[in-house]
Amino acid sequence: MKTIWTRIGLSVLPLLLVAFSARAGMDEAADSTKTGWWVVGMEASNNSSFYGRNTANRYPYIAPSVSYIHRTGIWASVSVHQLFNTEDYIDQLDMTLGYSFKIRKRLEVDLAYSHFSFGENTPLVNASTTDALLAKAAYDWKYVYTAFTGSYILGSGNDVFTVLENSRYIPLNPLWQGLLPVGLDPKVSITAGTQRFSETHTTTTRKKAATGNGSSGSGPVGGILDPLKPGGGSNNPSQGPDEEVTTTTTTNVSRFRVLNYELKVPVVVYYGNFEFEPSWRYAIPVNKLEGDESRAQSFYTLSVKYTF
């Protein structure tokens, strides 16, 4: 098992190489018009989750990332999740290509496609997924910032998730007239999505019992013309009571339900090209299926980004 410092070193080194090479290439170009921005980031958390679902064991992780944002709105990113309590060097690799644009001054839309790869022994809840299509619309109401995200997840089973989020950035600088931009960005969100489970149905039907001689009717045309059975044998007293036949079927069912309620309180600090964001998040999973070990808990996360 690798130590935290080994994981951090292996994660930071490629990011630094990418950042320095990209910066060198931009300096050599000496173009007065900036066409895009690079963002190098690192995120660390005390546990992992997927749309409000988590495992019984905690899996702290670090997630280095590199993104490029073009001025046209096209962007691409690569991120790596490395769990502290596993043997795999890479537990999850995400590659995303997206496009952001504004419809109105306060309405922004984001479209993206992601591909996921997982380590052989990863315990992550979302390890069965392979790809995802995402569409996000965000509107600034001046006092509240509302974002609605819809995701179509591909994998062993195709699922749909939606996240409704309301937030508002609150600058704290006026409180003490600090030089560094500092603020709070509290968010309240509701996650809903499809759930797959099995439903069992039992059906009971009645079946006519056989007659005393072991047949339901003899002679031509099932005994209808049998002279020994007036009326076709319908009133034969030797006929036993009806039999009950029970049939049980099990089918896979998918339902769309609320999955999670969440409160997140990030502190955002800007220092030059750096952005620091320590945050506390409390998630409450609901409508859990049998065997789901998710529970309400707190998540502590630190995110650092450098933009150039």
Rank of each mutant, 00 (worst) to 15 (best):
N47L: 05
S49T: 04
S49E: 11
S49I: 02
Y51R: 11
Y51E: 07
Y51Q: 09
G52V: 03
G52Y: 00
G52L: 02
R53H: 08
R53Y: 04
N54A: 05
T55L: 08
A56M: 04
A56V: 10
A56F: 07
A56S: 13
N57P: 06
N57Y: 01
R58W: 06
Y59V: 00
Y59D: 05
Y59P: 03
Y59N: 09
Y59K: 00
Y61M: 09
Y61V: 05
A63V: 02
A63W: 00
A63M: 12
A63G: 01
A63P: 01
S65Q: 03
S65A: 12
V66D: 05
S67D: 08
S67A: 15
Y68A: 08
Y68V: 10
I69F: 12
I69E: 06
H70P: 02
H70F: 07
R71M: 05
T72V: 11
T72P: 05
G73P: 11
G73D: 08
I74M: 05
I74Q: 00
I74H: 03
W75Y: 14
W75Q: 02
W75D: 08
A76D: 00
A76T: 13
A76H: 01
S79Q: 03
V80C: 03
V80M: 07
H81M: 12
L83M: 12
L83A: 07
L83R: 12
F84K: 08
F84C: 00
F84D: 12
N85A: 14
T86K: 11
Y89V: 10
I90H: 04
D91G: 04
D91F: 04
Q92G: 02
Q92S: 08
Q92W: 03
D94T: 10
M95L: 13
M95A: 14
M95D: 03
T96E: 13
T96G: 02
T96S: 11
T96H: 03
L97I: 15
G98K: 02
Y99S: 05
S100E: 09
S100M: 06
F101M: 09
F101H: 13
K102M: 08
K102Q: 15
I103Q: 04
I103N: 03
R104Y: 05
R104H: 01
K105F: 09
R106F: 07
L107F: 09
L107H: 07
E108H: 05
V109T: 10
V109G: 02
D110T: 06
L111P: 06
L111R: 03
L111H: 02
Y113G: 15
S114T: 15
H115R: 15
H115E: 14
H115S: 14
F116W: 10
S117Y: 13
S117G: 14
F118E: 09
F118K: 07
G119A: 08
G119Y: 05
E120H: 14
E120T: 12
